[in-house]
Design a binder for these strands. Structure first.
Lengths: 225, 225
DNA sequence: GAACACTCTAATGTCAACATTCAGACATTG
DNA sequence: CAATGTCTGAATGTTGACATTAGAGTGTTC
């Protein structure tokens, strides 16, 4: 997903990925599409035989997913898909807000024209989303692009540690209450890009904050505290 | 280090740790004490024979340390101890500032009396530090306590992903320019606790920000931008 | 009947051997 | 002599077997 948006005319480094990454991707996707609902136990043995891979790469993949907050595990107790409580959602939201505040500030300040174009394309793609699942993925991808535009590697890494949890939350809520989400969200993102383009930090910060508050309100049916 | 500061009269859960955790602790300590200076290559084979453990746990430990930002690695290319550039230090500082802002706000708001006592003890311990290395460890431990007082698990996790890098930076700078660090830092931390105790968020935020800026100034010899 | 101790099993933790890959040295060629 | 091709050694990636453990189930005792 990340290597897709490389600038035309430049070639990215030809990385070769190991089995662990492959397994991580599959399991992550399986969690998002409901194959492993929250609370499921993920047994290394099962996965290793299902994916026809030995337990080594599976272990690594699970450890990686635990780092993304999708799994919880303990000594000799295996891994379980997280069940996001209301408190968890609040934690994710507050942390995300803090990170995004820095990200927006940096992006409004340093984003290159190329970065902004990438962002615009990402926002555009959302208008053509066919189903809610795809829209969620594009929503996340948009925010990925914002963080990428900051050029702040550690900030991106910090975002990566809650990214999947945000994704999981969104996916778990679509279908419950999508009223207004599908229609308004694509438009909102276009506004966000415009705000970054004018490089008006304060406006951008407020728009992003409103965007988060609105999404949280729509999806949880409650106001932020 | 974390289980140390548990409230008296309560016993923490008796967790059983695996070899991987043990290895991670040893290697981390070895990096901090200069056994593996920045740029060193950490070979799984070497570590596994040196620690008399198979490569499995070593792999896990290295992966864990990579998550803490102490190591960088690539496909079939092993792990290398990070060399913090000026840009890296700036990244760490800005991210830390953002996280700590949220942490201070939450701590000033929700910290229990017990939490504040723990913080006071942590600040007190710094006065009795015998050498710079110990002072650095206590400094980090103090900030651990601040994050712990927030009760925000994900915020603590985010801190953990840069905690070791901050530690590495501090250790790499003591001896270069410690003038004023050893003397002023313990006192500053006492002020930080007092600010949290009065629950005056704005004052606390400013004090913590000043504290970071001062430390960065002393250790790098440059002003913040 | 409830609490305790024991057993058993299925899962994770660990290990050592095998396969694959990368980086550098060396030879080759224009 | 520079650029390319090949080779080699040492490291990582992967595997399956073995050791250990948590937790459920069973039986016993008071």
């Amino acid at each position: 997903m990340a290597p897709e948006n490389r600038a035309p005319g430049k070639v990215g480094p030809a990385r070769r990925r190991g089995l662990a990454d492959e397994v991580a991707d599959r399991v992550r996707a399986a969690i998002f599409d409901g194959t492993y609902p929250p609370g499921s136990r993920l047994r290394e043995t099962e996965l290793s035989s299902a994916l026809e891979v030995s337990r080594g790469p599976v272990r690594e993949a699970l450890m990686c997913l635990e780092g993304e907050g999708l799994l919880r595990s303990g000594w000799h107790r295996g891994a379980v898909v997280v069940e996001l409580s209301a408190e968890d959602v609040a934690e994710i939201d507050s942390l995300r807000g803090t990170l995004e505040q820095l990200a927006v500030r940096l992006a409004a300040e340093r984003a290159s024209g190329e970065d902004l174009d990438t962002l615009a394309r990402a926002a555009d793609r959302m208008r053509r989303a066919e189903d809610a699942h795809e829209l969620v993925a594009l929503d996340i991808a948009f925010h990925d692009a914002v963080y990428a535009a900051t050029g702040h590697r550690r900030l991106q890494e910090a975002w990566h540690t809650i990214r999947s949890q945000v994704h999981l939350f969104l996916v778990s809520r679509i279908g419950v209450s999508v009223e207004g989400y599908l229609e308004t969200v694509p438009g909102e993102h276009r506004d966000l890009v415009d705000a970054l383009r004018t490089r008006d930090t304060d406006v951008a910060l407020r728009l992003f904050a409103d965007h988060r508050a609105h999404a949280l309100h729509v999806l949880t049916g409650r106001d932020t505290d």
